[in-house]
Design a protein around this nucleic acid. Sequence first.
DNA 1: AATATATTTGCATAAATTTTCATTATATAC
DNA 2: GTATATAATGAAAATTTATGCAAATATATT
Lengths: 173, 173
Amino acid sequence: MRLQEISILKGVKNKTARIQKIKELVSGGAIDSQSRLLELLRQSGFDLTQATLSRDLKRMRIAKVGDGNGGYVYILPESARNTAAGHVHGIHRTAPSAGFVSIDFSGQFCVIKTRPGYAGGIALDIDALDSHAVMGTIAGDDTILVILRENESKQQVMSILKNIIPSIEEKTE
Amino acid sequence: MRLQEISILKGVKNKTARIQKIKELVSGGAIDSQSRLLELLRQSGFDLTQATLSRDLKRMRIAKVGDGNGGYVYILPESARNTAAGHVHGIHRTAPSAGFVSIDFSGQFCVIKTRPGYAGGIALDIDALDSHAVMGTIAGDDTILVILRENESKQQVMSILKNIIPSIEEKTE
DNA sequence: AATATATTTGCATAAATTTTCATTATATAC
DNA sequence: GTATATAATGAAAATTTATGCAAATATATT
């Protein structure tokens, strides 16, 4: 039953999970080559080759750009605007969490409060993650409603949101 | 006088002009490789190698991304957001500079290139400044002609335009 | 003007990325 | 279940992109 077992393992660490992990790693802002990303994916238990990774990145529209400091960095589509020339800063580390105030769950809804004016920007960042767990967002001026897919746990959503709002961790743990 | 001649040519087609041309070509959205871009640049009279082009793109933070249709496209930093899957948003502040591509001066004229559709909006913003230095603007779809008053220096005009296009400084190198 | 300093560039090559091809897995229909 | 079509994947080749280095050019200083 060797083959069977292997196939089960592959089923667990499937494409969807891998894609999600790639998003997480890339949004961290510290990936400068596919080999590096591959390394990290393998450390997370994913088994794939660089060829597959290249195809994933192509489909996900993840791009490699100069980081303004002599190196390169991989970025998620929506995050690209942060890299616009003129912002001396690195890639994602800056503001997304600056406007964050609180987060709350109720059923399949998640309500995020922000400082006035920040809701739109943060909602865009959430959309940029393009997570399966997030069905959509609606942003006002200081509130974001995140509509989740059924069967997605709070924990799962939290770990996704952590990518753009690092301070969530401190606030909730 | 061979060397002399060459240096004169290089002076004419200098880095600044090349950078600008690259922006124009890339914003056209039909570049899928550096060799293709190199080809077009050469057709425009620029003489450079792929190595230089690679370094230009790195500095300009131009990125290559999957085009969602099996191929790749090079994109300008600001354009990156166009590649995202469409979601409905409430409020989102977009800097007026989002559509800005390049700026050039010739005598009392200033020509601003924008991404398609942005010229009108940016021209409105320029008009709104109601600056004495700006006599008037004429906008097409992706180009704005700004007519300046005599005796107004480029620097002066630049510093005025910076109010609505903060990234001008870096963008024009 | 001459010298020193920094920047830009091309060439050759290295490194990274993409694609082709063959194979295996997954889903669909019967 | 078996057969057929579709999609995913790895290995290696092909292509594309990045870089070390030296020469050329531009910039600043005296």
